[in-house]
């Protein structure tokens, strides 16, 4: 078993282990569209246009090598071993060893999805991370956590904004939709679940 076969198998096995009950196969890209409910947001002025978020899909991603390059602006490398994509609007897998987070200042990944119909979808994902003293409360601005106050656990906000390049066909909607994502790191085994919302 070479390295690629190994990490591909490991990633798939891991994803199956942590997501046993989730209906990952519900609906294929070529079937009738399946969507999650939409949450709408607006501003204080009723003329502010509404904006909606709707869960599109999630990706369970296993990262592997972690390297830092001491360039003038330090560049990180965290390779993508593989993973699984599940949810209402896209199913498939993360193409094993198809790219990495090439961190510089912030999260900046380039890798490939392989949809259940074999379509190859390129993801370029930029992310931001910041720690605050407490989670958001309605009507109150977040207060960044200072290094002088490490005692409180605080609240980490990670947001990623992917740009997809999908082939012409059933996944074409991804080429003209804005997305925003959250992620949660999971243990046993170590992996990250990215949850992608369509901006409507």
């Amino acid at each position: 078993m070479d390295r690629r076969t190994f990490i591909g198998t490991a990633a798939t096995a891991g994803a199956a282990a942590v997501l046993p009950a989730f209906p990952a196969s519900a609906g294929h890209a070529h079937e009738a569209a399946v969507t999650a409910p939409t949450t709408f947001y607006s501003g204080p002025d009723p003329e502010t246009p509404r904006i909606g978020l709707r869960w599109a899909f999630s990706a369970t991603v296993f990262f592997a090598d972690r390297i830092m390059i001491g360039s003038p602006a330090p560049r990180g490398y965290t390779s993508v071993a593989g993973g699984e994509i599940w949810g209402p609007r896209l199913q498939g897998r993360v193409l094993p060893a198809s790219g990495a987070d090439y961190y510089r200042g912030s999260f900046n990944t380039y890798y490939m999805f392989q949809a259940s119909d074999d379509a190859l979808i390129f993801i370029h994902n930029r992310g931001t991370m910041r720690r605050f003293q407490a989670p958001p409360e309605a009507g109150r601005p977040l207060t960044p956590q200072t290094t002088a106050d490490p005692s409180t656990p605080g609240w980490m906000r990670f947001r990623a904004t992917p740009v997809f390049t999908a082939p012409i066909g059933p996944h074409d909607w991804m080429n003209r939709t804005v997305f925003v994502a959250n992620s949660q790191r999971q243990e046993h085994p170590d992996h990250t679940v990215f949850t992608y919302y369509e901006v409507l």
Partner: peptide, 20 residues
């Protein structure tokens, strides 16, 4: 069809909320 988000997955699936 609507695809419900299972309540029990809140530890796995991160939320995003928008604030004007």
């Amino acid at each position: 069809r609507e695809f419900a988000i299972p309540e029990t997955h809140s530890k796995v699936m991160g939320e995003v909320k928008l604030d004007y």
